[in-house]
Design a protein around this nucleic acid. Structure first.
Length: 116
DNA sequence: CCCTGATTCGC
DNA sequence: GCGAATCAGG
């Protein structure tokens, strides 16, 4: 699998279009993991390598762990600013299609832009 | 429950 | 560099 310029182009296209990795992944026949990883790789930022990266050994590292004392947040009176009383005209606003449904249309509308 | 995004590790 | 596996959150 070599990520061809075409693939990347569509990837970025759909991604920027607001599609999710899953949609693009399914569309391109990859897994969301590949897309996510690719996207991540794209934004590779050089000169940003922590010395001793992670002392973790293998597999499932417990990232996102922040045992910090973030509790130091007295959360003053964060009272809500507004109270959505009612006034919900609820016009005939069609709900957004489910990603799946949208995806179906998306596939059809993929428009094979650069598909030659 | 499903999906989404992010990250790391191994190849 | 790519993909899979995993975790965490919505």
């Amino acid at each position: 699998m070599g990520w061809d310029a075409n693939d990347v182009a569509r990837l970025k296209e759909l991604w920027t279009a607001g599609h999710s990795a899953g949609q693009i992944a399914t569309r391109l026949g990859l897994s969301r993991n590949a897309v996510s990883a690719k996207l991540k790789r794209m934004g590779q930022k050089r000169g940003h390598k922590p010395p001793t990266a992670n002392p973790r050994i293998v597999s499932v590292p417990k990232r996102k762990v922040a045992p910090l004392a973030a509790c130091a947040r007295p959360a003053d009176k964060v009272v809500s600013r507004r109270k959505p009383v009612a006034t919900k005209p609820a016009p005939a606003q069609p709900k957004e299609f489910t990603k799946r449904q949208l995806y179906a249309m998306l596939v059809d509308a993929v428009k094979n832009t650069g598909s030659r």
